[in-house]
Nucleic acid binder design. Sequence first.
DNA 1: GTGAAAGCGCTAACAT
DNA 2: ATGTTAGCGCTTTCAC
Lengths: 332, 332
Amino acid sequence: MKSTIKDIAKLAGVSTATVSKVINNKDQNISQSTRERVLALAKEHKYIPNRIARGLVTRYTKTIGLIIPDITNPFFPGIARGVEDKASVEGYNIIYCNTDDNLDKEDKCTSMLIEKMVDGVIIVASDKRKNEFKNLSNVYIPVILVDRDIDIDGIKGKVLVDNFDGAYQGVNHLLSIGKRNIVFITGPMTTNTAIDRLKGYKKALEEYDIPFKKEYVLEGVFKKEWGYKATDKLIKEGIKFDALFCGNDLIAISAIKALKDNKISVPDDVAVVGYDDIYISTLVDPELTTISQPNYDMGFKAAEMLVDMIEERKIEENRIVLKTELKIRKST
Amino acid sequence: MKSTIKDIAKLAGVSTATVSKVINNKDQNISQSTRERVLALAKEHKYIPNRIARGLVTRYTKTIGLIIPDITNPFFPGIARGVEDKASVEGYNIIYCNTDDNLDKEDKCTSMLIEKMVDGVIIVASDKRKNEFKNLSNVYIPVILVDRDIDIDGIKGKVLVDNFDGAYQGVNHLLSIGKRNIVFITGPMTTNTAIDRLKGYKKALEEYDIPFKKEYVLEGVFKKEWGYKATDKLIKEGIKFDALFCGNDLIAISAIKALKDNKISVPDDVAVVGYDDIYISTLVDPELTTISQPNYDMGFKAAEMLVDMIEERKIEENRIVLKTELKIRKST
DNA sequence: GTGAAAGCGCTAACAT
DNA sequence: ATGTTAGCGCTTTCAC
């Protein structure tokens, strides 16, 4: 049977208050002898403190909530791992939920997290969200937004990635290797992510005095099917292009597939740049040139910021924008 | 400010006991009028019950622990998602930890989970583990092992995959298309997973009256680097082979890369079969023939079994072995 | 039908 | 240097 603080107190012949003090090594006013006795007994009887009970009185559970769209999407495990790594060294556990970018599920998650008294939450929120998280509004725990820059009331911090610069780098690279007809196969333009990247795309073109053509922007979804479909359509419609700048690696990889199926060589005829640098991008043929996103770092930084907030340490920045990195490989 | 059961009780002019009863809709002996009044007040004041407090008295927190080696490894997100999906419909949350197959981290995780009073745990445990989880031994919560079949005391259930049959199917397929010199590039033979697959490999050969050659078994690690290295070595050493049966898709994909780099065509010269069916296996060129593992189902079934145990429902089976499925694609 | 009281395991003043 | 007490928010038994 699990032993409680009472058991240890009784065995040591002291009060529970004393045991509590030595377990949490608070207060130096405990004699060395009782301290040792208590510690020895605790060890002997495999005493594991009950954090639930502790949390009820201290109001801190040492648990943080992590809400992401879908752990099965290769973009998110890096974030989840970064969060957990930092959280665990700080003594926190992670309760994680998937939302499929569904607002109802997000609300359900936040509600459950509140019930469980998490100390804070990290969320990759749906772009569809326009208003605050209703469950989080009347509760004073810090909430950090990751990856998606959405304007929501009550958000205490953000950890983002510079999408403008990322796209700029990718397109600039294509231009620098002589490509001039660069098609941008993007996800939904309702998201800041896609909007910022389009800006970066335009900026790069501008610097090379290349007029922007809106028929070179293909708006779809961030899924692999879209890459194939979009590329196939370009070819069938006879649109002239010599490069593809893709909204993510999945799109890029399936675009390459479409090109191959149409006997168009990569990178000679058409160069392809992806986005994300999911780790299979080095496994495809040709290896994919892509914009590497610091997912792990995003998670890590978010956890760091959150813990700092929870423990009321001084926060340097409550909006961190991480840089992406262009990885030049064989597809360009 | 968050309202408590006391607040609602005061507002409704009843005792906390009454509020508790209506919130948990226990006991029919509550008049319709008070029930409605309480419910209305709870809604109006956004009352969210505190499960931490509740857990302290009921001994159930509606939380389960999920311990996996590394969420960043494409094999695990499917399991994690399956677990969460089933758990959440049953009203449970997931606390997740990564262990990197490190026994110390596993022990640390289990200890934290006990501190947080989880109702049960699902674990993909390290093959290195020989003895029971010490933190879980004197606490009476169910523990379910997933994917790796390890003999540990105190385990209440297992959800596994038929590795013998999976390997048998893969090798049998290679034989059926006329391949006779089939190399098995595997992970460490210290794991039941690898051992069972070797058995399946042998069985298939036997049925075709092909003698087993131990130089056709290359033992390494379940990482992509190993696939390239092993294949490269085979070629350099001039070993004759016409098929590769790989321990996982990462190995297979990088093996294909090595073949291509050596101008060996896939599948004509050498056919390749992977294992796992991580979703990029349809994105590589050629699309990979592989053994599809029911990861999501494993997680889902494990959560189902665990919740059944926690809620003391009748358990049909405490050892589930799921079937794999051969996906024939372009690499064979 | 409803409430009073005890208690889950723990911590935090405040005494002593 | 240690103990007493109250209480975190909730459920549960038993009494009315």
